[in-house]
Nucleic acid binder design. Structure first.
Lengths: 171, 171
DNA sequence: TTGGAAAGTCAACATGGCTGACATAAAAAG
DNA sequence: CTTTTTATGTCAGCCATGTTGACTTTCCAA
């Protein structure tokens, strides 16, 4: 009775109202461990390249929205420009990212991955995709749908306005 | 057609085999944002107490398994003892955690939350539980079941052996 | 009695957050 | 055409939290 489990929760709609603190705690811990497991592979790869998570995040979102501006990126990542700039500078110096002056607004810099940048992004996201795919496969289709639904609810409460960016000019 | 969405995935079992990179990328990003949203509330609370996430983690797992040893905690948290000790020392000094010499093995120290420690733990976990509950409620029971299933799959790949601890002596 | 495990500590260093101050270029407003 | 604002970049310094390496004390166990 202390733990009614997920199966019971699925059986009757009202059971959600009876979620015990213990059940919620399990969810919280699962998130904790999942977050860790989720960054484990990239972290290992990044160490080989002498980069950190900050670089991963930048590379990911530049790949996601090529041509995004620095301000866009700041907004998405939620860090200070000094913090981002430190990371961005090394990526540009190392030839993984290119920064192009905007045509419409010449103050803006539009960020793109170079070939090398795309290669790193691919390496990192392949690792995460594989992990994600494995989890999805073991969990089954219905579970995946539910997973995404809950995750989106958890995001909603904070952000998601950033969830699309406006690119410009392919170089 | 570019995005088949979660509903389609639920409809037919084989569709999992056709998970596109794009779908997986969305899952990855959802994890990223959800992890952030998940730590946002505690982070805010911790700042008021002049603590950081490291303190949160320690307090959480001591509350979870009262009487756990330092080595246990090191194993669960996956940090070095120097790192943990820095955090643990401030918690003990501030009277949130008590450290008791083991009876069976006097080399071991068993960790317990004090009243003040429990109060902080409560404050932190209340915030997370509320967020979790809100997400669960908006997502619905089936989604919650799936969410937990997938999360457990994602954990499995790395750890979970730590997922239970052996307490000793209540003070 | 001796080897090794559990814990604590010191020193030094890296990463990646933060703040504050300031510079430059360009757009926008007046 | 001046003035203000915006977007970006940069310097300097601080803080939290991770790391390695070396060393000590205590104590269990072979």
């Amino acid at each position: 009775m202390a733990d009614r489990g997920a199966a019971d929760a699925m059986a009757s709609g009202e059971s959600l109202l009876f979620l015990t603190d213990e059940q919620l705690r399990r969810g919280i811990e699962a998130m904790f461990f999942a977050c860790r497991g989720f960054t484990a592979d990239p972290d290992r790869i990044l160490r080989n390249h002498a980069y950190g998570r900050a670089h991963h995040r930048a590379v990911h979102f530049i790949n996601r929205a090529p041509g995004t501006t620095v301000n866009n990126l700041l907004d998405i990542l939620g860090v200070t420009k000094q913090s981002l700039n430190r990371v961005l500078r090394t990526l540009v110096d190392d030839g993984l990212v290119e920064s192009h002056v905007g045509t419409r607004d010449r103050r803006e810099r539009h960020l793109f991955l170079t070939g090398a940048g795309m290669a790193l992004e691919r390496e990192l996201s392949d690792a995460q995709r594989n992990r994600m795919r494995a989890a999805y496969r073991n969990a089954g289709p219905e579970a995946v749908a539910g997973f995404r639904t809950v995750l989106e609810q958890m995001m909603d409460l904070d952000l998601r306005r950033h969830y699309q960016a406006a690119p410009e000019q392919t170089p």
